[in-house]
């Protein structure tokens, strides 16, 4: 089978692999999707960005996974989880979308720059960003110390080592 718009070939083996090896246990039900479109009708990103979760599910079930891995579609979900809550078949498209993101990362997809910044901060200090100075109404900026908030205790070097080796395997 071929997608006549993109000329991509279907790969059903890849679909089985995705289902069996996904670290998101909920995606095993994607094959029960009966295309009722309840997910899409309430989708936050459908309203704003034209993400159609039922189409993502359909493409996966047709084995057109490469096509999705290369598309921006999987990076526009806001994770509002309405489709997870409301899907009558337990197919929960959001888990499929996140699963495809994980697969795209492994396949060396180009990641959004801000996401990469977050990851490097995580590896350095365990948090997604450093302590920021924030503006008061009069535009003076303040930090934790100035606001009398307790000094943060950051995770140990051991932890950083564990996380780093875990993420090195991914990237």
């Amino acid at each position: 089978m071929k997608d006549l718009y993109t000329m991509k070939e279907s790969n059903l083996k890849m679909k089985d692999q995705l289902r069996e090896e996904s670290p998101f246990p909920w995606i095993q039900y994607v094959t029960s999707c009966y295309q009722c479109q309840k997910c899409t009708s309430g989708c936050t990103s459908m309203k704003h960005l034209e993400l159609k979760p039922h189409e993502v599910v359909k493409l996966v079930n047709m084995g057109l996974i490469d096509e999705l891995l290369e598309s921006e579609t999987i990076w526009t979900c806001t994770e509002c989880l309405k489709c997870w809550e409301r899907c009558p078949q337990g197919a929960a498209p959001v888990n499929l979308i996140l699963s495809l993101r994980n697969l795209a990362v492994k396949g060396k997809a180009k990641l959004p720059e801000n996401l990469l910044k977050t990851v490097s901060s995580l590896i350095e200090i365990g948090l997604i960003q450093r302590e920021q100075r924030v503006p008061l109404k009069n535009l003076e900026t303040v930090d934790r110390e100035k606001l009398n908030l307790p000094k943060l205790v950051y995770p140990s070097e051991e932890f950083k080592g564990i996380l780093l080796s875990m993420l090195e395997e991914v990237f």
Binding site: L98, L111, L122, V170
Partner: peptide, 18 residues
């Protein structure tokens, strides 16, 4: 909770196990 880290939310898009 001291020495706490990120809850993992943003890593979900990269590696669910991590």
């Amino acid at each position: 909770v001291e020495e706490a880290t990120c809850c993992g939310f943003l890593l979900e898009s990269i590696d669910k196990f991590a």
